[in-house]
């Protein structure tokens, strides 16, 4: 089980990194999403894996519980990463609609035209 989780984290990380090294906005957004999954699963897995042991207290019998703390961390991380993805999507979209170009890199031409240097 551990090997499956670890290899999944590794593969998602690798794919995510490959995608954020692309030069257009959309693959970079996809890459960030993949890395988000990988990081969330990674953080979750630092609580060690457990089957059928949710951290919901049982009043009647003594049962094992999994580690609740990483879960709480990851829960908010999932929601925050939605916010982050939405902001990035909106930035990418605005940039594309404004300049009809979805490159993430500034070309040398852009930096010459950058404000502040044309004084």
């Amino acid at each position: 089980m551990e090997a499956l989780v670890a290899s999944a984290v590794g593969i998602m990380t690798a794919a995510g990194i490959f995608l954020i090294l692309r030069r257009r906005t959309f693959p970079v957004i996809l890459g960030l999403s993949l890395i988000t999954y990988a990081v969330n699963v990674f953080l979750f897995a630092t609580g060690r894996l457990a089957l059928n042991a949710p951290a919901v207290l049982n009043k009647y019998e003594d049962v094992p519980y999994t580690d609740p703390l990483p879960q709480a961390l990851v829960l908010t991380a999932i929601v925050i990463s939605f916010g982050m993805t939405a902001v990035i999507v909106m930035i990418a979209l605005s940039a594309y609609l404004s300049s009809k170009d979805d490159h993430i890199d500034m070309s040398p031409q852009d930096s010459v035209d950058a404000p502040g240097e044309d004084a």
Binding site: L49, L51, V56, T66, L75, I78
Partner: peptide
């Protein structure tokens, strides 16, 4: 869900 994290 499988790994005991229903909230997640």
């Amino acid at each position: 869900n499988y790994l005991s994290a229903p909230d997640l």
